[in-house]
Amino acid sequence: MKNSSPALLLATALLASASFTSCVTAKKYDDLSARQKATDQSREAAERQAREAVAELKKATESLNELKLENRRLVNDSAQTGTILRKTQGLYRELSDTYDKLIRNNEKVLANKTADYQKVAQDLARREAELGDLSNNLNKSRSEIDKLAADVKTREARLAELEKALAEKDAAVNALRAKVSNALLSFKASDLQVKVKDGKVYVSLSEQLLFKSGSTKVDPKGQEALTKLAGVLKDQRDVNVVVEGHTDNVPILKGTAGMQDNWDLSVLRATEISRLLTVGGVQPERITASGRSQYVPVAGNDNATNKAMNRRTEIILTPKLDELFQLLDANSQATKPTK
């Protein structure tokens, strides 16, 4: 017989199995518990068979002992003793074979159960490793989600600031348009128009209001309009002023003093108007004079009416948007992907 009893081997295997079940999820634990229950049932059957084998062995041993006693009593009876001895020896061999068979069967059952326990233990270890990986991935995902949520919250705050700045800018542009329109109400709509486009206020002055044909000197009526406009703009220190001169496609007369073409005419007219605005109180550093010649028409140069529309001066009023640009730059930097 072996030194360890079957019951001790089973208990040891069960304890080894139980040590691996502490870290699995409830669903997986239920599955393993079911398998463990089946294993326990098999173990109980094996133990029951072992007990029966031990009982049979004990019974056989007792029978053997009785036969041995009987054999000693009959050893002197030659004929009877010989018969009984041979019978006893035969029974002894049978009992020994039965005993060895029972031992082999019991060892085989224990070996099978041990293999099952080892398989369950390996499966538990694998599942535990998988759960560990899943837990690490989940923690990593949660950290990334928390970071994304914080980034979204920051961007929402910046977006709210940007929307507020845009709304304030739009309000400032509309207020500026209203002030300019009110200051220039006395002029005809055909000579002077005020409109908002692309977040800027455009004051369009016709040539008829400002200049005689081919001239760069502003007429008195035009000077009156520019003086009123300057009166509004001089207090609007956060507004930049761009003066653009525009012409039709009719070439200037040859020999016109100081001018070669419509580029010169448009630039000189823009410069003259800029000078009058500074005389009216607008800070010179806020004004930019430019000539666009005939290349930005508002109508086709195919008839007198359209050509008159193209001969114009546009004064473009742009609120300074330093704060808005700072917000846009900060938002752009915040949305750049991190390395």
Rank of each mutant, 00 (worst) to 15 (best):
V24R: 01
E130T: 13
P284S: 12
R43F: 08
S215A: 15
A289T: 00
N71G: 15
D123M: 05
I252G: 01
R158E: 12
E161T: 10
S215L: 07
I145E: 12
L328Y: 09
D40M: 09
L32T: 03
T21D: 07
N65D: 10
L162F: 02
R142F: 09
S204F: 00
A111K: 12
L95K: 13
D238T: 11
L14A: 11
E62I: 11
E244R: 10
T271R: 07
T247I: 06
D151H: 15
G90A: 15
A55H: 07
E168P: 02
I287V: 06
G255T: 02
V180E: 02
R126Q: 13
S215P: 06
V279L: 06
V282F: 07
Y92N: 12
T12C: 10
Q260S: 10
R51Y: 03
A115Q: 09
K254F: 08
L69F: 11
P337F: 05
K336H: 09
E224V: 13
E314I: 10
S274C: 09
Q236F: 03
R155A: 13
A175D: 14
G214P: 03
V267Y: 08
S181M: 07
E56P: 00
N262F: 00
S143L: 13
P319S: 03
A171S: 11
S206Y: 01
T271Y: 04
A121V: 09
N139W: 09
K28S: 00
N301Y: 08
S141I: 14
V201C: 07
V241F: 03
L324V: 06
V173F: 03
A304K: 14
A225M: 05
G258N: 07
F187N: 02
N137T: 14
D40W: 06
T61Q: 10
D261M: 00
L85E: 04
A183Y: 08
L10G: 02
L184A: 01
A45K: 08
Q36G: 06
V218P: 04
N174P: 02
V203C: 05
A175G: 12
A334Y: 12
A157C: 04
K339S: 09
V120P: 00
V180K: 00
S5W: 05
R86Y: 09
S293L: 05
R177S: 14
I84K: 10
K37V: 11
K200S: 08
F20E: 08
L162E: 04
A129C: 07
D329C: 00
V241T: 05
L162S: 02
Q193R: 15
R73L: 12
A38F: 02
T81V: 13
A167P: 03
A308H: 04
L226Y: 06
S266A: 14
A7D: 06
V173I: 08
A34Y: 11
A230S: 15
V296M: 11
L95T: 15
L327Q: 06
L233M: 10
V173Y: 01
P319M: 03
K307V: 01
F325W: 10
N112G: 10
D329G: 08
T12H: 10
L205M: 15
K339E: 08
E156H: 13
A13Q: 12
S181N: 11
G222H: 04
A121E: 11
L74T: 11
D133N: 12
G214F: 04
A270W: 00
S96N: 13
A167V: 11
L166G: 01
N112A: 14
K200P: 02
L9F: 09
L131C: 04
T25E: 07
E163T: 14
G231H: 11
G255E: 01
